[in-house]
Design a protein around this nucleic acid. Structure first.
Length: 137
DNA sequence: ATCGATATGCGTCAGGCGCA
DNA sequence: TGCGCCTGACGCATATCGAT
């Protein structure tokens, strides 16, 4: 994939795929956020990140450490912090897996498009060979 | 019906990375 | 430098499927 048609950092992806100015096919995950542009071999030359999700309803933020006194309060606070961290990580893992599946879908779509494109190019090449080859009879 | 193999999804941990 | 987010890896539970 070329970098010329990639969206700029900060942009939100709204299309699954797009045709860039130079004619190359671009594949994006809808709703993702472009955060980095960098050239790294055959990997995409930019990174995309989905918008951060809000805390689920019912989550109560912990009190500040300065308001705690007894060891029991400290233990409760530690437990709250751990549960909050686990819950956030649970949601993050779900989102991460969702994005990964979407990314694989993108790649599969890209393979399908490129296979068709490749087939057409091979056919075109054969046609041109027929036209350009000297007649021997 | 039941069994083993395989696939899929989930929660958790650990480590890397970017940011203030 | 500490904090929060992301993600690979692991173990577990459940679903699916073919063989018996």
């Amino acid at each position: 994939m070329t970098n010329s048609g990639a969206p700029p950092p900060g942009a939100t992806i709204v299309q699954y795929a797009a045709q860039s100015a130079d004619g190359t096919q671009q594949f994006f995950v809808p709703g993702s956020q472009v955060v980095v542009q960098a050239a790294t071999g055959d990997m995409p030359t930019y990174q995309i990140r989905a918008p951060t999700t809000a805390l689920p309803q019912g989550v109560v933020m912990a009190a500040s450490p300065g308001s705690l006194h007894s060891p029991q309060q400290l233990a409760e606070e530690a437990t709250r912090k751990r549960e909050l961290r686990l819950m956030k990580n649970r949601e993050a893992a779900k989102e991460c897996r969702r994005r990964k599946k979407e990314y694989v879908k993108c790649l599969e779509s890209r393979v399908a498009v490129l296979e068709v494109q490749n087939k057409k190019l091979i056919e075109e090449l054969e046609t041109l060979k027929d036209i350009c080859s000297p007649k021997t009879d």
